[in-house]
Simulated assay, not measured.
Amino acid sequence: MNAIDPAIHIAAANIRLDGVSKSYGSVSIIPKLDVEFRAGEFTVVLGPSGCGKSTLMQMIAGLERVSGGKIVIGDREVQDLEPRERGCAMVFQNYALYPHMTVFDNIAYSLKIAGLTKGERRVRVDVVAKMLGLTDYLDRKPGQLSGGQRQRVAIGRAIVREPAVLLFDEPLSNLDAQLRHDTRIELADLHKRIGATTVFVTHDQVEAMTLADRILILNKGEVEQYDTPKAIYHRPASIFVARFIGSPPMNILPVTGDGSVLRLSDGQPVADCDLKGKFQLGIRPEDVLFDTAGNASAVKAHVRYREDLGSHSILAADLSGTTVRITTPFGSQAPDRNVLLLTCPLLKLHLFDAVTGKAIPGAFAATTKVMK
């Protein structure tokens, strides 16, 4: 634990949004949002382009004015405060470094503006540089650095201020795949060490699942689900979440319940269920199993395409007029047949309302029969 860590641990503050909304004229970006980001947690705001996640981030930072509601950081309402008064530091997608300044001067700039002496700035920057592996680059200009190094400089410039809140707006999107992976590890390690309340905006589900303590999933400015990565993956609150999380995403099949069984559109029974009406049935690709026992009631699927990835395979198959994807366990391959019989454990099935798309909890709680 170094000198900067305790200060940031103490400063960590919760963020509460009470009825926060944002609109531009008659266009509503965020209708009304009530959510709290817990002090010291790493929260990821996840959603597709245009869902309002960057707008939400900018309102917390003070770069956008709220149209309604209030933002509370710690015990202060901040929606009417200037960005510099909010105790937040932000890392942008494009780094936003001063090209004519050295790495040292870029990191130290906010401390200079705040009136710290040259000696104080040196101590703080040295600590941050060591934390981020930048000690050997302090005399270089941003143009002499790699993309990953420039991103670390941007992060260093943010944390050197010892902020109560760290805000990241898609900071990894300009990096290549390997650098994104490496930087994710560095960010996770950094958060463990400094403990600042962190809000991280991304459209990348891998970043969300690997970094977050909790994930807030936005859809058209509204919360679809706010929970831990495990809960969101295994208990999605809606079809939107089920399809947005997972690679390949969850299979969604239209089914009809007659009060005793759910049937696919071609009449094949898939699960015992006492509900009546039209529904959507969800099945994760890795939860679909190949029937090798010759079960006469297994559902029949026709293979359309195979992806052999070496460690495992992904199959695309037609099941009752819907394309489903099946992922084999690591180290195993799919049967080399064009027609497959499939089964799935009942407890791995998810049922959603056909109109609202919302999950129906406990739909299979009273049954023990597997998918056939």
Rank of each mutant, 00 (worst) to 15 (best):
A12P: 06
R16Q: 13
L17E: 03
G19Q: 12
G19L: 07
I30K: 09
T43M: 03
T43D: 05
V44N: 04
V45Q: 08
S54E: 05
L56M: 04
M59N: 04
G62K: 04
L63D: 08
S67I: 14
I73S: 14
V78E: 06
Y98P: 02
P99Q: 04
H100Y: 09
F104Y: 14
D105K: 01
Y109T: 05
I113T: 12
G119H: 00
R124K: 07
D126S: 01
D126T: 03
L132W: 00
L134Y: 01
D139Y: 07
G143K: 03
Q149K: 09
I159M: 07
V160R: 00
L166P: 00
L167G: 00
D169W: 02
E170I: 01
L179P: 02
H181N: 00
T183Q: 01
L187Q: 03
L190G: 00
K192P: 02
K192H: 00
D204K: 09
V206Q: 08
M209L: 15
T210Q: 06
A212K: 04
Q225I: 12
D227S: 04
A231R: 10
I232V: 07
R235W: 04
F244Q: 02
G246L: 10
G246N: 11
P249E: 06
N251F: 11
V261M: 12
R263D: 12
V270D: 13
D272K: 08
K278E: 14
R284P: 12
V288M: 14
L289Y: 08
G294T: 15
A296K: 11
L309Y: 08
I314C: 06
L315V: 10
D318L: 11
S320Q: 09
T323V: 15
A334T: 10
L347I: 14
K348P: 10
D353Y: 09
D353N: 13
A354I: 12
A354L: 11
T356N: 14
I360Y: 12
F364E: 07
F364H: 06
